[in-house]
């Protein structure tokens, strides 16, 4: 009985497919523009996160105690508190201290800082997994510590860290949905808006999920795989 009471409205919804196409035609442009904003947020925060990852990942490996400690505090702080908390703090609390950022800027900053902390750990792990023999060969050729790092270790780190970085980038795309909560008009925000006026929740959130899925699976992941192939070719592995 319970099953039937669930199924009947479900089938009615499905049978009512004119309404989905009607819905789609009416709201697709709006959702597409939301998706564009999502892609923008994603691109900007990925760039910021990449820069932070590299800087703090290398700082974590510094011989200098102070530099290393600063990086550790940064990384543990941003990994230890939640992304949404950081986002709200930047958007709602920073202005109280005189620093007001636009919703878009706040979102990019929070995502960049948060994912940069995770990325820094990947960079550190990547540098540490370059075989010892590479350091030794560079030293035997009398390269300075900076030359060893810049010319020998970091270029090899790229191919090692790309797969975990790709996973992190997909996580970043998913996390961009949070910026809707500080009024950035991204895909999630548009979906909430449409839901609030039409109550066609299955259509609107279902469509949003599918758009996110397409962005991840058919745009972002192929792009990241292409980067991996490119990097592999650089070291003559492809």
């Amino acid at each position: 009985m319970a099953l039937r009471s669930c199924l009947i409205p479900f089938l009615q919804q499905l049978g009512d497919d004119v309404s989905y196409w009607g819905f789609f035609v009416e709201y697709a442009p709006k959702m597409a523009s939301g998706a564009m904003t999502t892609a923008m947020v994603m691109g900007c925060s990925a760039l910021l996160a990449a820069v932070i990852s590299l800087i703090f990942g290398l700082m974590r490996l510094s011989q200098n105690w102070g530099v290393q400690a600063a990086a550790t505090v940064y990384i543990e702080f941003f990994r230890g508190t939640s992304l949404l908390v950081q986002l709200y703090w930047i958007y709602y609390v920073l202005p109280l201290m005189g620093l007001t950022l636009s919703p878009f800027m706040s979102g990019v900053l929070a995502l960049g800082l948060n994912f940069g902390a995770y990325g820094a750990e990947i960079v550190r792990g990547g540098v540490q997994s370059v075989p010892r023999g590479q350091w030794e060969a560079a030293l035997a050729l009398n390269m300075s510590p900076a030359q060893r790092m810049r010319r020998i270790i970091v270029p090899q780190t790229f191919t090692l860290i790309l797969p975990p970085m790709a996973n992190l980038t997909v996580e970043l795309l998913k996390a961009t949905a949070l910026v809707a909560l500080i009024t950035v008009v991204d895909l999630m925000f548009v979906a909430k808006q449409i839901n609030a006026t039409t109550w066609l929740s299955a259509q609107v959130f279902g469509t949003a999920l599918i758009i996110y899925y397409i962005m991840a699976r058919f745009a972002l992941i192929p792009f990241l795989r292409w980067l991996e192939v490119l990097a592999a070719r650089k070291v003559g592995k492809a």
Partner: peptide, 15 residues
């Protein structure tokens, strides 16, 4: 795995 938890949350809650 490739869609946001937040959207899934709204999907389940409202749908």
């Amino acid at each position: 795995r490739s869609t946001p938890l937040l959207v899934q949350l709204f999907f389940v809650f409202f749908v």
